[in-house]
Design a protein around this nucleic acid. Structure first.
Lengths: 218, 218
DNA sequence: CCTCCAAGGATAGTTCAGCTATCCATCAGC
DNA sequence: GCTGATGGATAGCTGAACTATCCTTGGAGG
């Protein structure tokens, strides 16, 4: 990573400035290196924008919040920020309908989440999109997913709760929340591959064509 | 969506040109609209790049492959394309170590996947990153995730197998694979929120601060 | 004490993706 | 024949994430 990039992160507020020893020299410690590694991880593996990373890390660093607030807020900042369509938008009706169904599901599952939770908006949008395309976006599917995810989330939370030092817990929250996402998605796809191979053993008996380049025909 | 954008998608090969009725007029049908909706969904909800969307849709349209190949290849094209570090790269050692562990896990689970499967590279990178940051990237965690995902993947595959018309099945594969990802991730975060609220009921008793704007202090 | 140059800071430039706007030629319809 | 919407090509725009340059400063070697 180049010096210019580090300067850029400093400018953008992702990285705290070192304590200036003199006017022309600042001191950077081990925590700066860790932070830099975390930033790179968020941007590359986590696929976050610099904006998002800044906001998340700002909360993580903000002593104005207590432990659980900081963990919770960090969570809130992590995902994409979806806003519902305008009142006037014709798609709003479908949105409201889906949102109501999802709320009902959450009530049924007895999940204690806020109506304003960003992931709920993201969930609503995804389901709305699926249905708009004419695909199965039924609540039964969602319920199955939800039931599969809950124990995993509980497990993860237990891991996070074991960090005694708040700063480390925050950073761990950010890291786990973000970096386990690609893991989850990759495993889903590997599972697809296995299911596919299992159902029709002959398919893809040879290594599949290399992706990345446009395919031969077409 | 503006006409200019549609032209752009045509140029980029995401959308098949209509059959030219005359030199100054082409005919677009219902399938073009569906394709456009799918493209928008892949780009916005799915978070894909135009490049990726093009490649995936190219396979979906390519009659040179059979049903299962096309489903499989589409899967392969969908995810991010990760390449392992160079042989010379010092991080390569860790990469190989993690990769070997993951292979072993997959063998233990009896999942039939290729060593070259892109999701496997993505998985490896995520685990490598976690460990590089000093976090828990143990195989036991991964196994738990894998066991949770497999039945879900099987269920999804069953849904896809019910599409009789190949073209529809392909498009459905792309749609489901991509659009269920944000659903999965959103549910994981909602589950986190529930677990957190459950463990310390007082935390976040008031609606959390609005994300999107820089917070007050900090 | 003077010079030198590495580090800090500011500013402008670069690259790429994803659009967006303009221009021009064409030809169905009046 | 004239018009004007449409297709096609080309160039421009915007934002994100860097990257390169320049200028300033002040401690260290001489």
């Amino acid at each position: 990573m180049s010096v210019a990039t580090v300067k850029y992160y400093l400018r953008e507020g992702l990285l705290a400035p070192g304590t200036p020893v003199t006017a022309r020299q600042s001191e950077y410690g081990e925590e700066h290196l860790r932070r830099l590694r975390l930033i790179r991880a968020l941007l590359t593996v986590g696929g976050m924008t610099v904006q998002q990373a800044r906001d998340v890390l700002a909360v993580a660093d903000d002593p104005a919040f207590g432990r659980h607030e900081r963990l919770g807020i960090a969570q809130y900042m992590l995902g994409p920020r979806i806003t519902p369509p305008e009142e006037s938008d014709p798609r709003r009706e479908l949105w409201d309908e889906v949102f109501a169904e999802l709320r009902e599901l959450l009530t049924e599952l007895d999940w204690r989440v806020y109506d304003e939770a960003p992931p709920l908006a993201a969930l609503t949008r995804a389901v709305v999109t699926l249905r708009s395309l004419g695909y199965e976006g039924g609540i039964d599917h969602i319920r199955r997913y939800a039931l599969a995810m809950h124990p995993i989330a509980a497990e993860e939370y237990a891991v996070l709760d074991r960090y005694p030092v708040l700063e480390e817990a925050i950073e761990a929250t950010v890291a786990y929340t973000t970096l386990y996402e690609p893991i989850l998605l990759a495993l889903r796809r590997l599972a697809h591959e296995d299911v596919s191979a299992r159902l029709h053993g002959t398919a893809r008996s040879q290594p599949p064509p290399t992706p990345g380049e446009p395919l031969s025909s077409s």
